[in-house]
Structure formats: structure tokens, C-alpha cells
Simulated assay, not measured.
Amino acid sequence: MKPTDTMPEQVRRAVLAMPMAQTLKLVFRRIDAGCVELEMPLQEAWCFRPGQLQATAIFAAADFAAVAAAGTLLRPGFINATVDASLKIVAPARGSHLVARGRVVKASHWLTVCASDVFAVCNGTETLCATLLGTARNIDTAAP
């Protein structure tokens, strides 16, 4: 990462450098302090039946959005990682793509509670399909 990058840009670069994010074809639509919106196309490889995403793919989008939002509030020299998350699926994930909106619930020195809502988009209409509540561990990269 370039030292001149803003925290949101550092988070975007870090997430999109991950092989899983690349495999899922994640795209950031918005990234601000404490808030993230990302998009993930529906891929048949992630479906458990034609046109309906499996929970694992939904969880991945939700987790990336929530923890990326938490990452936007980190101090310089810190990274973060998921340590706990609970996903509740409330409707089938069908359509052309998912939109996951992550946000920070409560940030602190070592742990950040974060959340996301995931919407399935079909013909331009968003349907809430899942919600996630998670905890990210804030890791000091200079610590031994």
C-alpha cells in the first residue's frame, strides 16, 4: 500500500488483493469511514440450485462488507480480521447480483463490532436476503 493512500483506499486495496475476494468478483460501490457497500455477481458455481446462492457465498459477501467497514476506522499500523460472526438468512438470494452494505456498530481499541445487510438484486429490485452481526479483531502490525 502506498503511504499516501487514505484509509478507505487502503481497505479497498487490501480486500481486493485477497484471492477469495477476487474469486467472488467483489466490487466496491462505496467506501467511507465506517460504511461500505460492495457488489458480488451471482455465479452459478456458488449456487446450491439453479439461480439461488448457497449460504457460504452470502456469508462471504456479508463478512467482507462488515469487516471492511470496520477496517475504515483503524488507526495507522493496524489491520483487522473476523473473530466472530452470525448470519441470519431471511430470504432466498436470487437475481443478478448481491449488494452488501456494511457498517460499524461500535469501534474500540482491540475489537470492533460490525454488521451488514445483504440484498439480492433482481431486475433492479433489492430484496433483503441476509443480515450479519460480527466482531473484528484489530491487530497492531508492529506488535511482536
Rank of each mutant, 00 (worst) to 15 (best):
T135W: 01
S108I: 06
L98V: 09
K88T: 13
A62E: 01
V15M: 13
L87P: 04
W46P: 00
G71F: 06
I79Y: 02
V99M: 12
G102L: 07
P50M: 10
G71L: 07
A143E: 11
P50G: 09
M20F: 12
T125C: 03
T135M: 06
T127E: 09
P3I: 05
A33L: 13
S96P: 01
V99C: 11
T112F: 03
A93F: 07
G77A: 03
V90R: 06
C35G: 00
V105Y: 03
E126P: 00
T6Q: 04
A85E: 05
C122V: 02
R75W: 01
P92K: 08
R101W: 04
R94P: 00
T127V: 08
V121P: 09
C114T: 08
V27E: 15
N123P: 00
L128A: 09
L38N: 02
G134N: 02
G102Q: 09
A14G: 09
L111F: 13
R13Q: 15
L128Y: 05
A21Y: 07
M1S: 14
S108D: 15
R30C: 10
C47Y: 10
C129G: 03
T82A: 15
H109V: 07
N80G: 04
V99E: 14
G102S: 10
D84S: 06
F78G: 00
A45L: 13
G77D: 03
L38M: 04
L26C: 09
T125I: 14
V90I: 14
W46Y: 15
A60H: 08
A70G: 15
T125Q: 15
A17R: 14
A14V: 01
P8Y: 07
Q52K: 12
N123E: 15
V113W: 04
Q22N: 08
R75M: 00
D5Y: 14
H109P: 00
A107M: 05
T131M: 12
E44L: 04
